[in-house]
Every structure is written in structure tokens, then in C-alpha cells.
Design a protein around this nucleic acid. Sequence first.
DNA 1: CGAAAGAGCCC
DNA 2: GTACGGGCTCTTTCGT
Length: 548
Amino acid sequence: MRAHFGTHPNAAQLWQDTTGNHPPVIAIDTETVSLKDRTLLGVGIAVSPSDAFYVSVGDPSFQEVIILLQNPYVVKVLHNALYDIRVLRPWGIDVTLVEDTAIMTRLIGLGGVLEEASFYVKTTARSAGDVIDSHGVSTMAELPDSVIAEKCCEDTLATFQLYEKFKDEVPQKVYQLDRRVIPLLEKVSSKGIRIDQDRLEHIRKYYQREYSYYTAVADGIGFNPSKSFEVGYILSEMGEFLPLTKKGRLSTDENVLRGVRSPKAIPIAQLTLLFRRAQKMLGTYLLPLKDQDRAFTMLHMNAVTGRINGTSAGSNNLDRGLLNLPKRADLGKPEDLKYRGVFIPNGTRLTEADANQIELRVLAHLSGDKRMQWVFANDGDLHSDAEMAIWGSRGTRRDFAKVFNYSVAYNADVQAIADGIESTDLVRVAAERRKWLDTYTGAASWMNSQMIEGPRQGYVESALGRKMWLPTDREEKHVLNCSINWPIQTFAAEIFKMCILECEYLVDWALLYIHDAQLYEGKVPIPDLSSVSEVHVPWESKVGDRWS
DNA sequence: CGAAAGAGCCC
DNA sequence: GTACGGGCTCTTTCGT
């Protein structure tokens, strides 16, 4: 079907005008079976703030829609462009001039939800869930075409109006940055990364054996290691005093389990940790990729700070989070059991490039801390510098110093830092924390001013003008921490996004973006990115025959 | 049965 | 009485 919604008296004439003489700006919305099943049902196109068409896939006019979408000179406004582009990419949509009202409304503080943001314009959008519920069906595909068409047109009209209303109001630098990043994320998301099934199977068998073994041993002892309640109960029976979770249950997280001391309880705790590790590996990282040639994630920028994240939600069942694959926990393991080694190139080489200590460099820049800036300007190592400043040694406590640099800079309290360096001497850690603050006085005073200015204004702002409203429903401490962390994390993300745009000509080889790292197919020469922003950030590349 | 909690993985 | 920021996903637990 082809349907028209709007005020124009002659729909046929308007359609003819539209297809014959492509309008400069259109708003688009796709309707698919569901978020998981991205089979296209039809496309809605608003050609003005007041007129929209819906064309279903089978309609003779659909070809004209495709031709319109392929026109690189037409500005295409979408709400959550990443989703629709992914649906429309196979139809050849051109993404040169994509605009995204979800990014816009998020940036001006209205949130990214169309139904809510559209409150500020004439046409109000309804959520897919509400429409489905009100008709007593379970997927969009079951609705009559006319209902789908109406909902779709409403959405495109709301989108068109939001665009017109807010396009000049939105902070330009950060909006343009995110807008330009969209096509890269979509491209990388749909490419996926090749999986070495033999290696995956090898590791799977290893953890499957671990899983069976620990299950059997625990069963012999008389508890189920996957049930927190049973673990807590048996440890308590052995005389361990476990802290309580907020809902008053016995806490059995890794920290607690590693802290048990009675000789009978230690093996139980160890066993539980090993079991959980096997369960985590199997359930989250190994079994979901079984028999799959490639692994996919859907990259997006929905984080408060504009960081790129990856999810499986709202996409087909091939997608999953790929930004949190095990690494640290595999450190001591033999090569053939290291999880990331499962990912291999199409050809023979992979390149991974990462931005060296980007967040600490941003902190040095934002705070103007002289000592930090000196260290970075002289190609030094901030962790070693902190080690020297706190303990007067070099080398042996560098890892602790690293924990200090990150924890103190994000306002962790003494207890949290102590946990990080596995110390129980809180008095000592407090003194060391003091020493850090006395060493990096510029950073310390910047942190203080953030903690004053953030709550006073109710928001903090990034270098490129991303305004982030502080939460009003959280503890004061949390708000203070956000006031410090958000500008740092956001600026780092902005620099990172500037860098991947600088590498746009390599995008056909890009496999993944991971906050401060880029993964590429082949041996790719990463250009010098250290001067992309005013913060000097050196990039380090390594090349291998598999990811590691 | 779905939401929330608890746990654990990453930068 | 006191969570270090940003995420994602899985299993268990619990309430409707």
C-alpha cells in the first residue's frame, strides 16, 4: 500500500512532485517486524513538517522510495539513524547527509525517546509497544497496514518537526562530530569479526570440563555453586561472617569470597569462583558464538558521555556486546586458551591501535596540572611518576600507582582504593592518597572546583560543548564523582571519535572501536593521530595473526 | 512470567 | 549509614 497523512489537498499530486523532484530534506522511519526481526515492512517519508507518505515493501511505488533514498543530495533525517540505516543499507540508502534527531534531543536534554521528545512539537509519536498493545497483537507485522502506516507517518512528521525546531539550537561541534561518526559505526557493526571455530571449540571444551568438574565436586559437598544463597549458607555454617547485600541477602561476590579465612571455607570459596568463571565463559562468551562464522555487535553512542558502546539489544540475535571480551582474566593462561585469540582476520593479519593513557592526558589538559603535563610532554610514564612520588621507588609498585592514578582521579574513597590495591591498611592508603593529591596539586584543585561547580550549575560540560545534566535522584557523593569524571570521559570520547574520523579512509578495514582502541583487518598503517586535538595523545599499534 | 538484584566482564 | 565513572549480559531471585 501507499498511504498519505497530512494536510496537502492532493496526495497524488504531492507524491508525483516528491518523486519527480526530490525535496531537499526528508524525514524517514522504517517499520520492521520487531526490533529483533529486522525484516522491512515499509518506509515512511515526511516531505514537509505536515505531509508524510508510507509505502509498504510490496507496493509498486516502493522502487521510487528507494531511488529517493539513494539520492546523495537529499538530507535524510532519522530518529536513531543507526537502526534504520542498518535496515535500509541492503536497499542502497546513501548516508552522506544523515541527520539524527535522537542525538539532537539527547544533546539538548530532552532524552532520546521520540515519544517523549515529540511532546515539544505538534505531532506526538506513540511507542510501538503502545500501538501493538492497543490492538492486542504481539508484533508490528500482525497489525493492519493502515495502522502501521499511520504510526509510521506520525513518527516521520514528529522527526521532521524536531529537526526543524532544534537543528540550530543543538551544540554544533559535538552534534556534527556524532553525526559524522554514525555511518562508520553502522559499517563496522555490520561487518563483524571472523571467528576461529576450532579455537573456540578448544576453549569451550576446556571450560565445559571445568564446569562439569566443579559442579560435581560441589554436589558431593552438598551445595549448588551457582546459587548465591547456598554458597552464602554453607560458608556461614563454617563460621564465616559475610556482609549483606542491599536487599539483606548474604553477599558472595568475588571480593567477599577471596576474603574468607577459615581453612574449611577457603576451598568452598575457591571452588565457587572457579565454577562461576567457567559458567561466565560458557554462557556469555563461548556458547553464543558456537557455529557462527562471524561475531557482530551494534555500536551506538547512547551513553551519557557520548562514548561508543556496543550492544545486542534491539537487533537480530547475531548481535552481542563485543566490547567487554575477556582479557585481564586470561593474563596467566596459556596462549591457546586466551579468549580474544578466537578472533581472526579474513586474511593473515590484524592491527590493534590504542590511544595511550587518553583519560589521564585529558585530565592533565583540563586541570592544567603542571607536573602531569611535564611528564606527558617529556614522553614519560605517569604511572611510574606517581610511583616515584608516592613511594620513592621505580618499577615494583607501578601497578599500584596505576590504580591510584585512576581511582584518585575519579574521587574514589580510601576503601575503594584499598580494594583496588588489595590492601587492608586504610590509614596507610589514606596517607598515600594524600601524597597523590599533594603531588598533582593542579589536578586536585581542578577536581575540587568541579565538585563545587557541577552541583551548583546542575550540569557539567565537555570540551566540545556536550552538556550533561547531573542526576537529581542519586547520592551527593555520586553527583560529585560525575562532576569530575564526565568531562574527562567525554572529552576522551570526543578525541577518540575525531581520531576514527581521521581514519575514515580506512573504515572498510575497521573491525571494532573499543573506547580507546581500534581493531583493523590486515596490517594497517595508522596515521599520526597525536595532534588531532589539542591534547597530545600518542597511538600505539600492534600487528598479529589473531587478536590477543 | 517479567523485573530487579547480584554477579562479573570490559575501558 | 557511607559505591569510583561509563557500559553490557547472564543467572538467580522475587513479586505480581
